[in-house]
């Protein structure tokens, strides 16, 4: 029993240290790597909390995929984060404190950690343990609940991940060429403002000005398109 507690305390200490380091650091590379560390240590703690499936997933996703994605994004974006002035940190601190103390206030009424008689560990969750053997006939109760009892949630999960793939495809394109097309009104543009759709700093291969110039024009059936600014739209 004692070694488990020691292990738990050690892992928790590491999590706290890593989390605080993320707050303090400015190098994005370090922050992203620490995020991976955080996930990996969490995964270790999940094992200690008997959640082996979760640990496996967290290690593969949190420490693996997330970190790779963040590194890839960082490579395309920036290396350093700018410091935020102290005056701008007070608001967030207050919000976080309020949320935190609300949760601390509830701790007194929580069932003790690991209590086998807590409401959560008595009712639906334990029914699965009792009934999986009869109804589904597979030893891994988590798989049984995931794919059958709550299979519909998992269907939603598959759709979520699909939507994410679709979203990245829409935003970046699989061949890295999304985002150059410009929308144009199907008539004469009357605008006292130029549409700020283009890059602020034009890329070398881009046409210099005006920024609202379309890269490729959609098919048009009606009036010829003239893109220009009016004299302010007032008369």
């Amino acid at each position: 029993m004692v070694p488990t507690i020691l292990l738990d305390v050690g892992l928790m200490a590491m999590l706290v240290v890593v989390a605080f380091a993320i707050v303090r650091l400015k190098s994005l590379f370090a922050i992203v790597m620490l995020q991976g560390v955080y996930s990996l240590v969490s995964a270790a703690w999940f094992v200690s909390l008997d959640a082996v499936d979760v640990a496996f997933t967290e290690a593969a996703v949190g420490a693996g995929v997330s970190t790779v994605l963040m590194l890839a994004a960082m490579l395309l974006a920036d290396r350093e984060s700018r410091p935020v002035p102290i005056s701008r940190q007070i608001g967030p601190l207050i919000i976080v404190m309020v949320a935190g103390f609300a949760m601390f206030a509830a701790i007194g009424d929580m069932p003790a950690f690991g209590d086998p008689h807590s409401p959560a560990n008595q009712y639906v969750g334990m029914n699965y343990i009792d009934q999986t053997a009869e109804e589904i006939h597979i030893p891994n109760v988590v798989t049984a609940v995931l794919a059958s009892y709550r299979g519909y949630d998992t269907f939603g999960e598959a759709v979520v991940i699909f939507a994410a793939g679709l979203g990245v495809l829409l935003l970046l394109g699989l061949n890295g060429n999304a985002g150059k097309w410009r929308a144009q009104p199907n008539g004469i543009r009357i605008s006292s403002a130029s549409a700020p759709a283009a890059r602020k700093r034009p890329m070398p291969e881009d046409a210099p000005k005006p920024p609202s110039k379309p890269k490729s024009t959609p098919k048009r059936k009606s009036s010829p398109k003239t893109t220009r600014k009016s004299t302010g739209g007032k008369s």
């Binding site: 499936d53 959560a120 699965y128 949630d153 939603g156």
Partner: peptide, 10 residues
């Protein structure tokens, strides 16, 4: 309890 595990996997 397996239920929280399933929820968190999702």
């Amino acid at each position: 309890n397996p239920l929280p595990h399933v929820l968190i996997l999702t």
